[in-house]
Simulated assay, not measured.
Amino acid sequence: MAWRRRPEKPCTIVARSIEVLGDLDPEECSSVCPTDALRFDAGRVVVEPGLCTVCLACMAICGPSRIRVVSDWVCPD
Rank of each mutant, 00 (worst) to 15 (best):
W3E: 13
R4P: 05
R5S: 09
R5I: 04
P7C: 08
P7V: 05
E8F: 13
E8Y: 12
C11N: 05
C11K: 07
C11F: 13
T12S: 14
V14E: 04
V14K: 15
V14A: 12
A15S: 15
A15Y: 10
R16D: 09
R16G: 04
S17F: 05
S17Y: 06
S17T: 07
I18P: 00
I18D: 06
I18E: 05
I18A: 00
I18R: 00
V20S: 02
V20K: 01
L21A: 09
L21R: 15
G22V: 01
G22N: 03
L24V: 00
D25V: 04
D25N: 10
D25W: 01
P26Y: 02
E28T: 13
S30V: 01
S30L: 06
S30R: 12
S30Q: 11
V32G: 02
T35D: 10
T35Q: 12
L38W: 01
R39H: 03
R39E: 10
R39M: 10
D41T: 00
D41V: 08
A42E: 13
G43I: 04
R44G: 03
V45K: 08
V46M: 08
G50N: 09
G50A: 13
G50V: 09
L51H: 06
L51C: 02
C52Q: 10
C52G: 07
T53W: 09
T53I: 15
V54Q: 03
V54M: 11
V54L: 11
C55L: 03
C58N: 07
M59C: 11
A60R: 12
I61H: 02
I61V: 14
G63A: 08
P64Y: 08
